[in-house]
């Protein structure tokens, strides 16, 4: 089949205007930037070398080129390399000149961090003392010698040592532990024998704040009966020698 003739005139290719030809004209290939040609590790080595230099002369660039085989391996001419290195060096110098000391973070002043550091040290030592004194919870079996006495002791040790108020000698600690355990044991026995719950007055007496001195603690725990019979200071001397305190039950 033949196609029917058409009346259309043959297409004439229009000439492109100057502007159009400028648009579509192929631009000359821009060379890749040096930092994209040279691998990062080589670039870092080069940077290190440049940092140590005060001036980058053409002879230095040649030496670097030979050393790292820049032109041979990556095709970067020494001239380009030199320009690039000088650019880096000047940028680094500017950065060093304009860099200001970083502003301290909010709430992290030197005084606070010192104070906190000292407190943390004390806390760490308290933790190690507690661990050494009581061992792990399973080992020391606090349920056998009353939970509250155990809490009181641990809290007391923490409070005294963490606040750095005063030292607690081991003897005093042992005495305190025994006194507390003994007093609680007696309380439990009394409750069992009487069969009645404790009155509010008794609770208040045992819940009172822990006195500063051991003598006062003994007086509070054992009441006036023991202090009337024996001199408290003598009993304290006895305990401070490392011997176990007398476990006389209050009458």
């Amino acid at each position: 089949m033949t196609r029917p003739p058409t009346n259309k005139p043959p297409a004439v290719r229009k000439r492109k205007s100057k502007r159009q030809s400028r648009k579509t004209a192929v631009s000359p290939v821009r060379p890749k930037p040096v930092e994209k040609i040279i691998p990062v590790d080589v670039m870092n080595k080069l940077r290190d070398r440049v940092e140590a230099l005060s001036e980058i002369s053409s002879s230095t660039v040649k030496t670097l080129d030979q050393e790292f085989e820049i032109e041979a391996r990556y095709g970067v001419t020494p001239r380009r390399l030199g320009n690039y290195l000088r650019k880096i060096a000047s940028a680094d110098r500017e950065k060093a000149n304009t860099t200001e000391p970083a502003a301290p973070k909010r709430g992290t002043s030197d005084a606070w961090s010192k104070k906190l550091g000292a407190h943390r040290k004390r806390q760490a030592s308290v933790a190690s003392i507690l661990d050494a004194t009581f061992g792990h919870l399973e080992d020391c079996k606090p349920e056998l010698w009353d939970r509250r006495a155990y809490w009181m002791l641990v809290g007391l040790v923490y409070e005294r040592i963490a606040t750095n108020e005063s030292e607690i000698p081991t003897d005093e600690l042992v005495t305190l532990a025994k006194i507390l355990a003994e007093s609680r044991r007696i309380e439990v026995k009394i409750r069992e024998t009487s069969g009645a719950s404790t009155t509010r007055e008794e609770d208040v007496a045992t819940d009172g704040p822990i006195p500063e001195r051991l003598a006062d603690i003994v007086r509070q725990v054992y009441g006036t009966t023991i202090s009337n019979k024996t001199d408290t200071s003598n009993s304290l001397d006895e305990t401070s020698n490392g011997r176990a305190p007398s476990t006389n039950k209050p009458s």
């Binding site: 104070k115 906190l116 407190h119 806390q123 308290v126 933790a127 507690l130 919870l137 155990y150 809490w151 641990v154 809290g155 007391l156 923490y158 409070e159 963490a162 606040t163 750095n164 704040p209």
Partner: peptide
């Protein structure tokens, strides 16, 4: 939290907590 963590699993009285916090 840090103070209670040191003595964990033991409990502490609020008064003892206060005294230890007064240092800071």
């Amino acid at each position: 939290l840090v103070a209670l963590h040191v003595v964990y699993p033991v409990a502490m009285q609020a008064d003892q907590l206060l005294r230890s916090l007064l240092v800071l």
